[in-house]
Design a protein around this nucleic acid. Sequence first.
DNA 1: GCACTGTATCACTGCTCACTTATATAAGTG
DNA 2: CACTTATATAAGTGAGCAGTGATACAGTGC
Lengths: 119, 119
Amino acid sequence: MHAFDVLGDPVRRRILELLAEGELSSGAVCAVIRAEFGISQPAVSQHLRVLRDNGFAVVRPAGTRRLYAVRHEALRDVDEWLERFRRFWTPPLAALATEVARGKRRRRLAAEDNEKETP
Amino acid sequence: MHAFDVLGDPVRRRILELLAEGELSSGAVCAVIRAEFGISQPAVSQHLRVLRDNGFAVVRPAGTRRLYAVRHEALRDVDEWLERFRRFWTPPLAALATEVARGKRRRRLAAEDNEKETP
DNA sequence: GCACTGTATCACTGCTCACTTATATAAGTG
DNA sequence: CACTTATATAAGTGAGCAGTGATACAGTGC
């Protein structure tokens, strides 16, 4: 499932917005979504599953609860897709900083690869 | 239709990628998409319509052709939705520049509103 | 152990939406 | 004008997916 397919659903977008504030239990997410969209608990649970399966969220058991958090890597991929359009509205300073960040990230990823190859 | 629903389709994303390079005729888009996705001309035309109707593309007649171009405003809205997540991977410099740009945009929009109210 | 709460999965269903074929509209060309 | 090319619209069909109710599973406290 492509990143944008995941974000194509309003419920999933809302869940991510909620998780952006910080870790939340399945039940907490469920409560808000039920109130706002009027859908059942299984429906919310399935959306959480989609988010998990596609790397948009991570889950951590805490007693009987399961705490969800955003995985920002997935959203960064979306952000990078926008890159090619961004130059039309991004001022040069931000573009430069983004470029610097991207270079950093590339170097980091490359370093990780080297670690794997020569452990 | 929400911006992310529009981007939820791989064909539409690809079309936007093509248009990001510059203005293209319906036929030119069609040729590429047909080759890559194997769908019919009407199918492509319908996707172009969705992009038009949702403000992701503008069209300009040129003789018998119709030239399509990206409307960046729509993509900026998507970009702004990502804003709340971006702080996790954006370096401070870029964040500052983005903030400056946003202030600019807000002032511009406000100015436009004033123009309307006192023409 | 049992009951209870919190969460996930299963099996099914209905609706949305992307596709197709056929056709309409519009502009250039002889 | 008829003919062709370029593009859009119409009508109908099929698949996918988000929803439901029922159920299973896991952890907590008695």
